[in-house]
Structure formats: structure tokens, C-alpha cells
Design a binder for these strands. Structure first.
Lengths: 337, 337
DNA sequence: CTGAAAGCGCTTACAG
DNA sequence: CTGAAAGCGCTTACAG
């Protein structure tokens, strides 16, 4: 069987340094009441033995693990790699480590959350467009702070950091009308995702109010390049002036379909707007007009919300809404002056 | 200050179930010697109280945390999001949780590794093209199993799972010559990364041996779409028949540069081969000929290597080399029959 | 500033 | 199969 790992404990360090285990503990606690001399003795001994405090044992006492659970549901998002990286780095800077948990068909949200709970994470960041009342209830019950990122349901009694999708819908409508477009097709993925619903509704509200333009079709369950390209078979029959997609990848697919399969010129024959400002979207022939999300801010706000909540559980939860910009490139016509 | 979390402990469950804490512990240990009746009583009480064993306390005794550290250095790789997801899911299936650690300019490898060590991770998976002898030495010293993924240095006394880059270089050369190309330009990123060196060397060895063809230039420190596109300014002067890139993104940039900035037709005027088979590479006009890496296998092998090592530390480390396929699409000419 | 002692929540020989 | 007891490695009042 497994050979026993011979761990270096505070006892060993204490003995070598000629002090008590309390002193060793204090030497590793910032601002603890230890003399500089003791601290130095301990540090030398610790270095010699390769000692690091056992966080597990510590957390048993302090009831803090310095562990943050990162729950991610929507892995299709092409930004997730860099998002993950940034979370991990920024949390590390705040002295937290990141425990990753995945949600998918096989492992449901309950399993994941229970895993995280067993590890006594100090808090949870949930990245998902899906609502999760059960999750929030469970966390509140266990007094584990959680912040919901990118989930647009506001009634929940917890911290949320969101993109203001209503504003996006309105801005999109204003821009579209301004550019002279009147016949629209909207495309999005999962039809139940709140953010897409909000954008679509606020878009159409503006259009109705101004009594200009018309949404010819509202296509759903279309996500990603290939589905976008395939969707052109339907779109071509509808013949819109502008196609607005819920993802840059979908938009790029639509453009490929339009150009390659139907020989359209973009934006002359048809304009396209994406969502997300994927790095790809500015490449070569793509030059996609799209919505640029405040990723960095989303991350920063969610981390600071969570940490604030961890340190002051009695504070009321914050609900933050972030604004986005529209980047105008070459898949929509230029504004006439 | 922080309100005390009122934790449910095994003591509470024991009391409610009318058994000892030992019994509670056993009820949560698979194959422990408990009667079915006791186990059921415990389960009912646990459910009623919302009890989950505290993994931190458990790990103090068992010396196993069921935590795996995932160290990632090369975040440019566009596959990292899905790689991360798969690791997390597969480890979860094996009853491990993933702790993420990042390496970058700010947080060096030592800081990250010490973080992981403090959390007493049972093992570490290091995803990086960079060599890391120090890391391996440190892990061996602490008896923490580590497997190096995608790092081609073989002498290290640890488990490694790699792509066989020599084979790729040879296959690339054979294909290139077969297709009738003779004048090559090679492009890669960081010139010190072993995998790129190996591919380049084995490629040129084949060419020299066959006394056919010539590498006109070996460009380094070029990575990603934009740098690839810019590199066309130099490439156009060299006028190669085939450009071989160390990344699909670079290749796509070269193609954009060739088409848009220099009006070349691909592959008629110049052929391009990428590396990695990024999903983008099969899209629309891209249709990139590229090297398809065995991602899934890389992940599976590294996990099983690590778990084997965790369970049997005395076993000698394995060094696994995986083979890759070349996907021929439309950025190279077709083979004449 | 310092150390002895208690205790965090768990598991595991041990004895029955 | 079961429970009392010891102990994992740490921190933190407490008394000095």
C-alpha cells in the first residue's frame, strides 16, 4: 500500500527553533503577537525543514478555508478559458484558491454544490445564464455566500452581477434604426435563457414604440458557427436587412453561409450583428459589428462582492448591472452623416 | 464581525440517530463494517440535519484530500477552456476535486506550487510546454505525485504524457514532399519550447535525408492571428511554397495576410499548414490543413497516470507518447493520384 | 511576548 | 457490528 508521507508539522519546527507550537503558529499569522526574534527563529527552522502550515488543520479551527468554489455551467462561451484564468489569478491575489466545479448533463448542480460544501468553501461564484433558486437556497441555508454572475434573475436573495441586457436591446434597436435598417431577424440559442429574452423584448419594444421596422422572425436554439451557417437556409427566404445574433460565433456562421452558400455581399445585401466581441470577430474578413461585454469588470465586481459578503455576512446582497458597448465594424453599413 | 456558521457535525447526527460518532463515520465510508440498519438510521438523521462530512477534518486523518492541483501555464492555447472542463469532470467522476492554479508573470511557479502544497493536494497535473525541473524536484521531495502534460523533456523522474512531436515533424515532411512542395517556411512561437524545436528538427532531418526541398526560413516568436498576419510581410519576400505554423491561429493569420494584404490565392500561390485543429479551422473559407492532437487521450492518460501514482507511489513513473493525425483540408493542394 | 491546554470534526485501531 | 478513546495538525483564549 501507500507509503506514509512523512509530514513536517509545527511540532518539528517548534522543536528545532526551540519554541512552542503556539509560537510557530503565530509566526505564520500576520499581525500576531510574536517578537521579531521568535518569528525569525521560526522562519529559519521552517525553511530548513520545508514546513508549510497545513491549511486543512488550520481551517478546522478558523472555519475559513480560503477556498472559493467556481461553478460553471455554460461552457460554450468562448471566453471561459480566459475568464477562468482571471478568476483564478485575482482570487489568488486575494489569498483565495479556486476549486473548479462543472455542471453538465451527467453531474447535476446538486452534486457539484455538495462537493463544494464538503470542502467548506468560503464562498461560491456561479457563472451561468441559468436560474438556480435551489442553489441559492441551499447556500443561504448553509450560510455560504454565493454570487451569481450572468444570471439575470433579480428576485433572488443573493448577490448578482449582470450585464444590463435591456440596455443592450435598446441600444441595438436605436443603432439599427439609425443605420436605416427596418427588417430584422433575431437569432439566439436556448430560448429559455433570460438574457436573450430580455434583449429581444427591449429591442422590439423600442421598434414598436418608434413605429419603425419589424422583426420578421425570432429564431431560437441556434448557437455556434455551424448552426448559424445552416440557419441561412431559412434566413434567405425571410430576406431581412439585418440579422442580430446572440453570439459572435453564430454571427460568423451566418456570414459564412451568406457569403459562401448564397453569394451575398455583407453588409450590402444583408447586415449582421454579433454578441460578445470574440477575438476572432475582428480578424481578416470577419470585421463583425458586435456587442462588447465588460468581462474584466464582471470578474472584478463579482470577486469584490463575494469577498465583502464573506467578511460581512450581515450586509444586504448587492445587485449590480453592467453596461456594454456596441463595436461598429464592417458587417453593418456606415452611418450617413 | 462574522457570525459563526453553526455547522452540523457527526456528533449531532450521532445523537439524533442514537448511535456513536464512529458509527456515523462508518456510515459515510464505503465498505466499512456497519450494519445496514445503523447505516440507514444515520442516513436519515444526516439528511434531516443536512449533514455532510467535513472533508478537511477527514483529510487530517486519512492524509488524502481528494484534491488535485491543476497547474496551467500556457493559457494562449484555445483548447484550454474545454480541456479544463474535461479535467474537472473526469476527476470529479473519480471522486477528486480540481484546484486551479495559474502561472504567469506575476505569480511564479513556486508560489503556485506552495499554495497547492498547503492544501495538501493528493497530486498535481501540470499543463505546460515549459520545462520545470524545480517543480518536479519539489513534488518528489514532498512525495506529491505529479504528471507533466505537454512538456517534452523526458529525463525527469516523473510521469509525463506527451505528443510525439518528432513523429509529427516526420509526417509533416513526408506529406509536404508527397504533395510536391519543396520550399518551406516554418513559423513558431517561443523559440525555446521543446515541442516546436522537435517538430522543426525532425522535419528538416527528413528533408535533408531525402535531399529534397529546403527550409528557407525558421521564424520564431510569432504566435496568434495578428502576428501571423504581420509575418506575411517577411514571408512574401521569401516566397515559399508552403508555410508550416505552430498554431492554427497563426496559420489563419498568415492566410488572412496572404489573401487580404497580398492578394494571394491559397493554396495555388502558397500553401499553409496549421497545428492543433482548432474548431475555427474548419469553418467557412478557412478549411485549414492542420495537425489534430489527441486531446481526449491526453487527458485520460494523464488522469489515469496520476491516480495510479497516487495509489501506488512505488511504481516507476510512466512516460507516454501519443500520436497525432494530419487533417488535410483546402489550404494545401490535393495529392495527385 | 510566551507556552500549556483545550478543542476544531473527523477516523481508526482496539476491545468487546 | 459497535463505542470509547486517541490523535490528525493546527489555533486561540487563558494565565503568566
Amino acid at each position: 500500500m501507500k507509503k506514509e508521507k512523512s509530514r513536517v508539522t509545527s511540532y518539528n519546527v517548534a522543536k528545532l527553533a526551540g519554541v512552542s507550537r503556539s509560537a510557530v503558529s503565530r509566526a505564520f499569522t500576520p499581525n500576531a503577537s510574536v517578537s521579531l526574534k521568535t518569528r525569525e527563529k521560526v522562519n529559519i527552522a521552517a525553511k530548513k525543514l520545508g514546513y508549510h502550515p497545513n491549511v486543512m488543520a488550520r481551517s478546522l479551527i478558523t472555519k475559513k478555508t480560503q477556498l472559493i468554489g467556481l461553478l460553471m455551467a455554460d461552457w460554450e462561451n468562448p471566453f471561459y478559458a480566459s475568464t477562468l484564468k482571471k478568476y483564478s489569478e485575482k482570487l489568488q491575489k486575494e489569498n483565495y484558491q479556486t476549486v473548479l466545479a462543472t455542471i453538465n448533463e451527467n453531474s447535476d448542480i446538486n452534486t457539484s454544490i455538495e462537493f463544494l460544501m464538503q470542502y467548506q468553501v468560503d464562498g461560491i461564484i456561479m457563472l451561468s445564464a441559468l436560474p438556480s433558486k435551489d442553489l441559492v437556497r441551499k447556500c443561504n441555508q448553509k450560510h455560504t455566500p454565493i454570487v451569481l454572475v450572468g444570471n439575470s434573475s433579480k428576485e433572488l436573495n443573493t448577490c448578482t452581477v449582470n450585464i444590463d441586457h435591456n440596455a443592450i436591446g435598446e441600444n441595438l434597436a436605436a443603432l439599427a434604426l439609425n443605420l436605416g435598417y427596418r427588417r430584422f431577424v433575431m437569432i439566439r440559442g436556448d430560448k429559455n435563457i433570460e438574457s436573450g429574452i430580455q434583449r429581444t423584448e427591449s429591442f422590439s419594444k423600442v421598434i414598436e414604440k418608434k413605429e419603425e421596422g419589424k422583426i420578421l422572425a425570432n429564431l431560437t436554439d441556434i448557437l455556434g458557427h455551424d448552426e448559424g451557417r445552416n440557419a441561412m437556409a431559412d434566413i434567405i427566404k425571410i430576406d431581412p436587412e439585418l440579422v442580430i445574433c446572440s453570439s459572435d460565433l453564430t454571427a460568423l456562421g451566418v456570414i459564412d453561409g451568406a457569403r459562401i452558400d448564397y453569394n451575398l455581399e455583407i453588409p450590402r445585401d444583408m447586415a449582421v450583428i454579433g454578441f460578445g466581441d470574440n477575438p476572432i470577430s475582428s480578424w481578416g474578413m470577419n470585421r463583425l459589428t458586435t456587442v462588447q461585454l465588460p468581462h474584466e469588470k464582471l470578474i472584478d465586481e463579482s470577486i469584490s462582492c463575494l469577498i465583502r459578503r464573506i467578511n460581512n455576512p450581515e450586509l444586504p446582497p448587492k445587485n449590480i448591472e453592467l453596461l456594454s458597448d456596441i463595436i461598429t465594424r464592417d458587417t453593418t453599413r456606415k452611418l450617413m452623416q
